[in-house]
Write a protein that binds this DNA or RNA. Structure first.
Lengths: 348, 348
DNA sequence: ATACACAACGAAAACGTTTTCGTGTTGACA
DNA sequence: TGTCAACACGAAAACGTTTTCGTTGTGTAT
């Protein structure tokens, strides 16, 4: 039970009375070393459970085989699915992942990136925090890229930055959703969305508008509820409820609701039910995201799946491909993951 | 826009025509160096945005300032809350976290630990995979510990292993929950639990039994449903539903249900409603966990909160304390986080 | 006998730090 | 003038690898 620290090449060399080089070569099965000594060294190494020190390798190779993830929040079904996707292909290709949470804060995003950019990782996969999007200050991304460290952004991205991106077609996804509502006969479709500085909020709102256009209908400004999602921290759900309640009371003919995320949809359904409306008979609902709420709500929520895991997988592939391509490839791609409208019981 | 790789001490030294040692000392504000040269070097370093290479530091100090997390699954509200807690205090104390997912597999757990144990991290925080619990093979944990790398286990732990642990009092938590149901007048309380090899399942079942004992009532074996949670992968929820439906049909007098996790409770509520039962009038429900489902279900679910974030914070504190205590402290503690019964609308 | 190929191994540099231990140059003081 | 402390700095080792480039010794062909 005595503590056995990891054995090193040097110790093996000393023990077997050969040089460090010989040990290293023997363990990597070099033809430079005779079979006899190779056998001896390999046996000894196995006995003592030798494993090369990762840090030393990282220093020598100037690559760490780990990728850094920076996301705004981890207690979030979508982001954890993305992480799962990243981890899956990263592991498959011999990489580890190290995660940093920005907690939607600009400063924490910057700090976190700095902590990791000094050699700890080979590249970033990240989704931009709301605060950063609001301030539109992207210097930390550009600096990192200029240092030769590749970045892949997913979901929340900005065009100004030169890097690979993995996104969904928010516009198309929400247009499809709203089209579905309109096709189902809804005449008064409301949208519950976020302020425009969150790009996905803006795009999903736009998709809503374009669906009306395709149906030769004109949207009603009263039916567009833009909530300040800085407020949607645990506590402020109540204020959201009252906002939604007002929406319904001011527009009694609402027969369809499209919400840009799962929680908004669930809350809206709750309010509607409270007001005596039947789902989906009186009013139909569609949400946006992969969440677990949608699946297990009653009625279960029709939703636009954004395939978070697949986004993560693709992001990891893009990053690792770039890391392992030695020619300085300055060509960046934007991959669009198809959304999918998952029909459940909140729509007819 | 030319690519500027991170500058090193050596380059600064060369540029300023001093030795590497001088640069290093100047940047660490050593009194050995004159104010003049310090100013000059520090200015230059700031200009070129010098930051010490983490890998080199790790190699030199033989500590990486990162902690490894191994969890069975990340797409899970409880685990992501734990991670958030870990990340919070880790960051506050200058550590990074690197996550590995075992995906409930023994092999992946072992592989993941080996990948990280070779110098990449200073210590582990982990929760054991179901498969490992089933096989009861804990050699990889013991080996890691014997190498001098501390481990902190949380939630799913085993006594055989000598390390710090952070758990909740599963027995007490579930006993309280069931007591609540019995106090509320329930006569026929069912439990939906897991097979016994998952320690938390076993303990929660035991709490259920002890609550009966406290109430001088004797449990009815027919009301104990042990589902094989190896099956509860996305797809097999249906089979769970039919099992629960059978439970209700075979025992029409059930007026209370305690489920050892959130999903079981939600599904049971759905089935009950389908069978025409009113919640909480006809039958009351209590679940177990922090999840988002509980809060937003209709009716919202009374639940035993296990304070995942707090568990993570405590685990990180235990680990970092041990890492930074140089005296070989061979004393391990088990911290119990208090559970909390959060009363919502699924109980009277 | 000379040259030369080849087999088997070791020395040393390199990755980027920090730190210990010199070393040379001052200035003060007896 | 000689001694000694203080000051400012550099050389080198160390962390654990891999790899390049020797350096031996042996055997073979000329």
């Amino acid at each position: 039970m005595a503590m056995k620290k990891q054995i090193t090449l040097k110790q093996i060399a000393k023990e077997l009375d050969v040089s460090i080089s010989t040990v290293s070569k023997a363990l990597r099965n070099s033809i430079e070393i005779s079979e006899d000594t190779k056998d001896k060294i390999q046996a000894f190494a196995k006995l003592y459970n030798y494993r090369p020190n990762n840090i030393a390798l990282s220093l020598k190779n100037r690559k760490t085989k780990t990728i850094g993830i920076i996301i705004p929040e981890i207690v979030h079904h979508f982001f954890s699915k993305v992480i799962r996707g990243i981890e899956l292909v990263a592991n498959k290709r011999g990489y580890n992942v190290i995660v940093g949470l920005s907690n939607e804060s600009f400063d924490k995003e910057v700090i976190n990136m700095q902590m990791l950019a000094n050699g700890s990782i080979d590249g970033f996969i990240l989704s931009i925090s709301k605060e950063t999007l609001l301030q539109q200050d992207y210097h930390h991304f550009n600096e990192t890229i200029n240092q030769g460290m590749p970045i892949v952004m997913f979901d929340r991205v900005v065009n100004e930055i030169n890097c690979d991106k993995v996104i969904i077609d928010d516009l198309k996804g929400s247009k499809n959703a709203v089209n579905k509502l309109l096709d189902n006969g809804c005449k008064q479709v409301a949208i519950i969305t976020t302020k425009d500085y969150v790009s996905v909020g803006r795009l999903r709102t736009q998709g809503y508008l374009e669906a009306f256009e395709e149906h030769k209908m004109s949207p009603n400004a009263n039916l567009i509820l833009k909530v300040d999602d800085a407020l949607v921290s645990e506590d402020h759900i109540e204020s959201l409820e009252t906002e939604v309640e007002q929406l319904f009371k001011n527009n009694t003919k609402i027969d369809g609701v499209f919400a840009v995320n799962e929680l908004y949809a669930i809350i809206a359904m709750k309010v509607a039910r409270k007001l005596g409306l039947k789902i989906p008979e009186d009013v139909q609902f569609i949400g946006f995201t992969d969440g677990v709420l949608s699946k297990h709500a009653t009625p279960s929520l029709t939703t636009v799946s954004q395939h978070g895991q697949q986004m993560g997988e693709k992001a990891a592939e893009l990053l690792i491909d770039k890391l392992e391509k030695d020619d300085q490839d300055d060509h960046y791609q934007t991959v669009v993951i198809e959304t999918e409208l998952i029909l459940r019981n909140s729509t007819k």
